[in-house]
Design a protein around this nucleic acid. Structure first.
Lengths: 351, 351
DNA sequence: GTCCGATGCTCATCCGTATCAGCCCGGGCC
DNA sequence: GGCCCGGGCTGATACGGATGAGCATCGGAC
């Protein structure tokens, strides 16, 4: 009963039970082919010894012998925790972890991946990737070559977020539809001239958001859209004043940081949001509280995204699961949250 | 250069380079005993093939062959992510992850551990524990038997948080000193009758906080201390009214949830905090923002705790590091944060 | 020519587990 | 008595890599 000193192997158990190591393995795995039959007497004796010694299988050996070991790798192309990305990754990881608990698998976080060309590399000299049965890939900018290499050698993986690479399974967020809906709301509210503040155009999700905004503008005739690539630090009083002078009555921001900055600068100028300027944003704010308003926004279901991604990987890994092709690539809907930063424009459109 | 299809083994590389598998291994590990010498010509040829094939070592095989693989297990006795514990574990994990990146090691999260007797079990039938070089143990309530078993078989681990078990290495938080200091501040402010609201007395950290509060009260003569074991739901108007009628002018709360509840109930009664009742708390509030006041409190450096724990484990795993015994068990100081919920009692002590 | 030492490798084995082919033994049948 | 059959196991091998022991070859010294 008492946990014993030293690590116990199947061979030791075999000796104690007076059988061969093979029998121990068979008992442990409940394999009873017609070729290999274990009578109850023997099985019980072996099980007894297993219980007494507190045997724990060596996962490395199992893996080497070609058995799945219920470990899923998690790789993030951008470092995951350093505060900036934390609000982004935390809900994702929460979903992944919850699902992992559900599936009974462990998570191997590849925190060691070396950085090269500004991105972390998954496949380096002694990557621990192969310990895992499969792998989740997170991050905005993935390496096409690495994705290709993984596919080529048949290593099972799922991308978190839509990927344009042929054959890559993913679960993503339907940013096109979401951004279109939210932008449509802005248009419905009476705005005819919008500005879209976005990030550098890298990564599928960023492209999708842009397309969604454009589609939302196209939902009514004659809508004008200014697009500006600015990170939040570049959002100044000059920028906003310029936009407004040009006739812009509503700003669509890609990130919460941009929206926060717009609100701060606008408020600093003495403007009222949303009376003087509506502000909507395509992401959730970093944290509740603070002095920021309740933005009208898109709520990407990140926790669900994490969970569904792992679920998909689980199905891919399950040989019994005949996964139809279209279920290998799915998009989750984003909810539009009312908020208080969208209103009809105070001054009707000028042209 | 192009990543090749199929997984590449040392044997394949050996064939391509016209050497034996042993040479490939020697080249990869830079082992050049006097017994085994590899001339530059051969080494370069092998390295060339390695680069061309995009070889990645099989971590399971390495581990099986007895090499450390730079994987650190992370085990939480309470499920880690489910929202309740999230605010507790997130900063810890942030510190652990940052340090892991520093050390170049991967993290294996044991999300699969089965629950028995209300706790998760680390050592079950096919635990993946043995894949890791060592392991961090988080959680309030650890299993003494499991700690003992790990020690007995010499598996390296570090407990996050002080442990009373002989020989267990840990990094903890100095709750005794912290709670004593904070409670001392309350006493210095003129309070002579305090109430301490605490949780069920399980786990070393909870005991430590209690001892600290008692020590803080002992810093001046004649201080009275009421202790109540209540979770936040049991904090009612009746309870607070009773305490105050009994002469209590300051409440020390163990958890942020308790403090928040005290503040809500007190405010609901029309009391002013801190004029009518001072409230201090031995933990950080869950999140910034919300309507809660800026509590006078202890700030446990959880992120640092995570990082230091992993650092300690790293040193234990490093055979070159002669770790003095006293450094195997350390406590980190908790900072006292000013806040606005402690003031001199409006009505001087009655006895 | 022989012996020695250094050089440059290869061989064999082990790590712990899974799996399959096949051996031994006892009993029943002809 | 010989044969066959099925139950109950064991042995051998593979997985990929690390490593100590040792073998073959060559140049040089005597």
């Amino acid at each position: 009963m008492a946990a014993r000193a030293g690590k116990v192997t199947q061979r030791q158990i075999a000796e104690l039970a007076g059988v061969s190591q093979a029998v121990v393995s068979l008992v442990l795995n409940g394999k009873a082919n017609d070729a290999t039959r274990i009578p109850d007497r023997t099985r019980e004796r072996v099980e007894q010894v297993i219980a007494e010694t507190g045997y724990t299988a060596n996962a490395a050996a199992r893996r080497l012998a070609g058995v799945g070991n219920k470990i899923v790798g998690v790789f993030t192309y951008e470092p995951a925790f350093p505060t900036g990305a934390q609000d982004f990754y935390t809900p994702l990881l929460a979903g992944i972890e919850a699902e992992a608990e559900q599936l009974g698998c462990d998570l191997l976080m590849f925190t060691s991946a070396p950085v090269r060309d500004g991105r972390r590399r998954l496949l380096h000299g002694n990557s621990r990737l192969r310990l895992a049965d499969g792998c989740l890939l997170l991050g905005v900018r993935m390496d096409g070559d690495e994705l290709g290499a993984l596919q080529a050698e048949g290593f099972p993986f799922v991308a978190v977020g839509r990927r344009d690479v042929e054959g890559v399974p993913y679960v993503g967020l339907d940013y096109v539809a979401g951004a279109a809906t939210l932008t449509g709301r802005v248009v419905e509210a009476g705005h005819a001239h919008l500005a879209y503040l976005h990030l550098e155009q890298a990564g599928e999700s960023i492209v999708d958001r842009m397309r969604g905004v454009e589609r939302g503008c196209a939902s009514a005739p004659g809508i004008r859209l200014d697009t500006r690539e600015v990170d939040e630090h570049a959002i100044t009083a000059d920028l906003l004043t310029g936009l407004r002078a040009g006739g812009v009555t509503a700003v669509v921001a890609e990130t919460a940081a941009q929206a926060a900055r717009v609100w701060e600068v606008a408020t600093g100028l003495g403007w009222d949001v949303p009376r003087d300027l509506s502000v909507v944003v395509l992401a959730d704010p970093p944290r509740a509280g603070s002095r920021l308003p309740d933005f009208t926004r898109l709520r990407p279901p990140r926790t669900r995204l994490g969970a569904e991604s792992l679920r998909l990987l689980g199905r891919i890994l399950d040989p019994a699961d005949e996964l139809p092709d279209r279920e290998r690539r799915t998009l989750l809907d984003c909810e539009v949250v009312g908020g208080r930063t969208l209103a009809a424009p105070a001054h009707p459109a000028q042209r």
